[in-house]
Write a protein that binds this DNA or RNA. Structure first.
Length: 575
DNA sequence: GAGATTATGAATACGCAA
DNA sequence: TTGCGTATTCATAATCTC
């Protein structure tokens, strides 16, 4: 779950940027005026709006029509009109001229008929030798802009398959989709598997409903369809409070194989979970607070297609309260501190200066301090997860205590070259093992001989530890994790637990392209489970500097989770 | 230069009273 | 329904120390 990436940032398009920034940069360029050699004829227009919409992939003809109908000032109405045209344009009745060998047959987001010469006239002006590639015209014919096709060929290589190229473009479009003019619910994959067509029409229906309900000046209140968090946050049930619901109906596109399990922070900016859910086949997220499993809170959303009946918890059950977890603190715990659970374990801990300030604030009083002091101390204790370790003395948790609360074996992150600071960081970015294991427990009966696992953003191996503790053999594990110290932790755990299977660890998620996946899957017959929690640092409320949502530098890697999941689904359905 | 230490709010949800 | 107070949050950047 580590999202550490390059610190490089550039406002300009950089052809030499590192892999993990490529998609983001590519997308940034989509919102800019096209370079001269690939510019459409829109350059003859003085309308910046026209340029921007054409650059987004709408045809000049349709943009002009939309502007004419709605007026240049009413940008929102123009975009909505274009989206409506788009949806109508790709209805099943409309003939599609796609490569029949390719599993996709969509032309989403494009308004122009394939016979429309606008885009082709653009192509004629292209001087980039890459345009001579035999994949170039098929990509343009599929509805992608010349610029998108060229960049994909440049990035993926001329020998890449059409599926890889469209995958790259789709991921790039999605990674910055919310940065475009479209409202957050609009980004969507243009092509990939056929099952997207249903999602596409669902979205169109939603758009139509919004239009019908909304007033002329505003289509829909932004909060109208925002996913709400359950209270209590127990998802489809927790061991201590099982809901009566024993099953659910999954959207057709979500039905496997493979099983998938995606995780991220529940308290993300508005609209983020709508987007995540929509991309992950419209599966309803399961929001669960780990305080129902252990002694610390961890509010997370999980989107998965696993069965939900007959779940069972890991044993032994972890300590359920602070006092159970840390019995020695009971002696010093003041009566006016009513906490029984810790708050979310994060990547940083309270400072020594803070615990000193608290000690000094309390030392002036023999008995209970006055209410305003209690309030100050309690606020800091809650904010920094401090526990009482002596008279008037609070302290942050030690790394091994965090390991225990999160369900990892003792010393899981200790030694081997990792610093104390990095231990906190890696642990703070991890799964709560008991929570995830409860959800994954249904796999035990389904895969008695073990599973093949694709673990994306593996972090310190929360998923692997959960499956191992459930007694589910790990046959082949492909683990993608950018942090070297985290990869070392997983490798070390793998060896120490005498795993019989095969662990393949990759550093960069961009390495996982269609060819690599096909190669891996052909060697052991496909994946049974794709699990991962993409970086949350641009989503979490504790980030004061770059809480940029799903378009953030790291959190946009969610779209790589989707890209890879969808690719695996395509390959497995084809086979 | 690596690791440790420290200071740095805002967005969001929710409960409750008016 | 609205406004207000309270509670929570898988972090980042600057600085210091060795």
């Amino acid at each position: 779950m580590n999202g550490d990436g390059s610190d490089m940032e550039s406002e300009n398009f950089d052809w030499n940027t590192e892999d993990e920034l490529e998609i983001a940069n590519f997308q940034s360029s989509s919102n800019q005026t096209l370079p001269a050699e690939v510019s459409s004829s829109s350059s003859s227009s003085n309308s910046k709006l026209m340029d921007r919409l054409v650059a987004m992939g709408f045809s000049q003809k349709m943009v002009a029509k939309a502007i004419q109908e709605n007026g240049e000032e009413n940008e929102e109405a123009i975009v909505n009109a274009l989206l409506t045209y788009s949806a109508l344009d790709s209805s099943p009745q409309k003939p599609q001229q796609m490569d029949s060998n390719y599993c996709s047959s969509e032309n989403e987001g494009r308004l122009d008929d394939l016979s429309d010469t606008d885009s082709f006239s653009d192509d004629e002006e292209i001087t980039n030798p890459m345009s001579d590639n035999d994949k170039f015209l098929p990509l343009v014919n599929m509805g992608y802009t010349a610029e998108e096709a060229l960049i994909a060929l440049e990035r993926c290589g001329e020998d890449s398959s059409l599926a890889e190229l469209t995958d790259f473009i789709t991921a790039a479009q999605m990674s910055k989709a919310s940065d475009a003019l479209l409202p957050p619910e609009e980004p969507r994959p243009r092509n990939l598997c056929n099952n997207h067509k249903k999602r596409r029409f669902y979205e169109y229906e939603v758009l139509k409903r919004k239009k019908q309900r909304g007033s002329e000046k505003k289509i829909l209140s932004e909060d109208d369809e925002t996913i709400r968090l359950p209270n209590p946050m127990i998802g489809f049930g927790v061991p201590t409070d099982a809901l009566t619901m024993v099953d659910r109906t999954l959207p057709e596109g979500a039905i496997g194989p493979p099983y998938f399990y995606y995780e991220n922070v529940a308290l993300a900016p508005k609209g983020v979970w709508n987007t995540i859910s929509r991309f992950l086949y419209d599966v309803e997220p399961e929001f669960v607070d780990s305080k129902f499993f252990c002694a610390s809170a961890r509010k997370r959303g999980y989107v998965h297609n696993l069965p939900i009946q007959n779940r069972f918890p890991l044993v032994p059950l972890p300590p359920y309260t602070i006092h159970e977890a840390f019995p020695l603190t009971r002696k010093w715990w003041p009566s006016w501190d009513s906490r029984t659970k810790l708050n979310c374990l994060q990547t940083c801990v309270g400072s020594a200066k803070l615990s000193e300030r608290i000690r000094k604030a309390l030392e002036d009083y023999d008995g209970d301090p006055p209410l305003h002091v209690q309030k100050y101390v309690l606020e800091e204790c809650r904010k920094w997860n401090l526990v009482w370790v002596g008279r008037n003395k609070v302290a942050p948790l030690e790394p091994d205590e965090v390991e225990m609360l999160l369900g990892f074996p003792k010393n899981h992150t200790r030694g081997g070259g990792i610093s104390r600071t990095d231990r906190y960081k890696s642990l703070g970015n991890s799964f709560q093992v008991d929570t995830v294991a409860f959800h994954l427990s249904v796999l035990k009966d389904l895969f008695p001989c073990g599973i093949n696992l694709l673990s994306l953003f593996s972090g310190i191996g929360g998923a692997e530890v959960a499956l191992h503790r459930l007694g589910i053999p790990l046959k082949n594990v492909v683990s993608v994790e950018i942090s070297e110290v985290n990869r070392n932790i997983v490798r070390s755990w793998w060896e120490q637990t005498n795993q019989k299977g095969n662990l393949i660890d990759l550093e960069d998620i961009q390495q996982l392209n269609g060819d690599r996946l096909e190669q891996l899957m052909s060697s052991f017959g496909g994946f049974d489970l794709i699990i991962g929690g993409s970086p949350c640092n641009n989503l979490t409320g504790s980030n004061r500097y770059s809480r940029d949502g799903l378009e953030g530098k790291d959190s946009s890697l969610f779209f790589d989770y989707f890209r890879i999941l969808d690719l695996v689904k395509c390959i497995m359905s084809r086979n």
